[in-house]
């Protein structure tokens, strides 16, 4: 009887291991809580500020999304502030889509070379180079864009050289390493036995790459491209340096234009908190944030679809 009580006491005693266990759980849970709080805080803050343009300053959402004149300091004939964000939205999408279109074939081509055609040289030379490119600060890309790409564009197409085309060139180089390394991961994830099966059936290496490997890697490759687009969409500094920062509808690829990010970075320091000018910029930030959420959602959807196939 006594020994039973003793055993019970021993088993119910809070040992050091049990205390550590609950501590560990507490710490990791707090870390999680902090991250969730930060994310929710950022979204809440940007949303409250961004919505103020429509709620406090009574700008119509429709005008904001479709009007082409961006000049928050001036009111139009009807007394409404001119905060048409369409030029920036168009600029952002244009530059994102164009750079993704240009970068994708190069990225997939490089990934195929690194992974399928020459894995040894790929691992030794191309992989480190790609990783290095990812780490170059965007101001360096922007500076090179400003001193090389812009003058070349000016010499070839005339005009000032600033514009969507220069921005696309810079972003193309900036997202290329990201898309390449993610495409490489996608190709690496294709099981080796797919390739063997195809080769054993008498397919050539090119047929194997084209008909089996790339097909099987399609969800991963799409994720890579969307990821690159998300990066291009959110890039501010390098784009701001070469795009010309004119809040106008881009009339051609070599005319000065602007993106959501470039207007934000150039404008946010020159406005007073709580003013319409400031709130309008927050609305742009909100659009940016929502778009990144959409990109994230797309990546997740593709990933889920890919898992279902496999």
């Amino acid at each position: 009887m006594k020994s039973t009580q003793q055993l019970e006491r021993q088993l119910k005693r809070h040992s050091k291991a049990a205390r550590l266990e609950s501590w560990g759980r507490f710490i990791s849970f707090s870390a999680l809580l902090l991250i969730v709080a930060v994310v929710v805080g950022i979204i809440g803050f940007v949303a409250s500020k961004g919505i103020a343009t429509f709620a406090t300053n009574h700008v119509s959402l429709w005008d904001f999304l479709t009007e082409k004149t961006w000049n928050p300091n001036i009111k139009d004939a009807h007394g409404n502030p001119e905060v048409g964000a369409l030029p920036m939205i168009v600029g952002s999408f244009l530059i994102t889509i164009l750079s993704a279109i240009v970068a994708t074939p190069f990225a997939i081509g490089t990934a195929v070379f690194m992974n399928e055609i020459s894995p040894n040289r790929g691992a030794k030379i191309l992989q480190p180079v790609t990783e290095l490119l990812v780490g170059i600060p965007s101001v360096v890309y922007g500076f090179i864009g400003l001193s090389v790409v812009v003058p070349v564009t000016r010499a070839v197409f005339g005009g000032s050289g600033f514009g969507i085309l220069s921005g696309t060139c810079v972003l193309f180089v900036m997202i290329l390493p990201t898309v390449t390394s993610m495409s490489t991961d996608a190709l690496k994830a294709v099981p080796r036995y797919y390739r063997e099966a195809s080769l054993a059936l008498g397919a050539t290496q090119w047929q194997t790459i084209y008909k089996v490997v790339l097909r099987a890697a399609t969800p991963g490759l799409m994720t890579a491209v969307v990821f690159g687009m998300a990066r291009a969409f959110g890039e501010a500094l390098a784009v701001q340096m070469v795009i010309g920062n004119a809040a106008l509808m881009p009339s051609s690829l070599v005319a000065p234009a602007s993106t959501l990010t470039s207007v934000l970075t150039t404008g946010i320091g020159n406005t007073v908190m709580g003013s319409l000018q400031n709130n309008a910029l927050w609305s742009l930030a909100l659009v940016l944030l929502l778009m990144s959420l959409v990109f994230n959602l797309i990546i997740r959807l593709i990933g889920r679809k890919g898992r279902m196939q496999a």
Binding site: P191, Y193, Y194, E196, A197, S198, A200, V212, R215, A216, Q309, A310
Partner: peptide, 10 residues
């Protein structure tokens, strides 16, 4: 050739 692990394509 047929391999050890069944390897149908997706």
């Amino acid at each position: 050739m047929v391999f050890q692990r069944p390897n149908p394509f997706a």
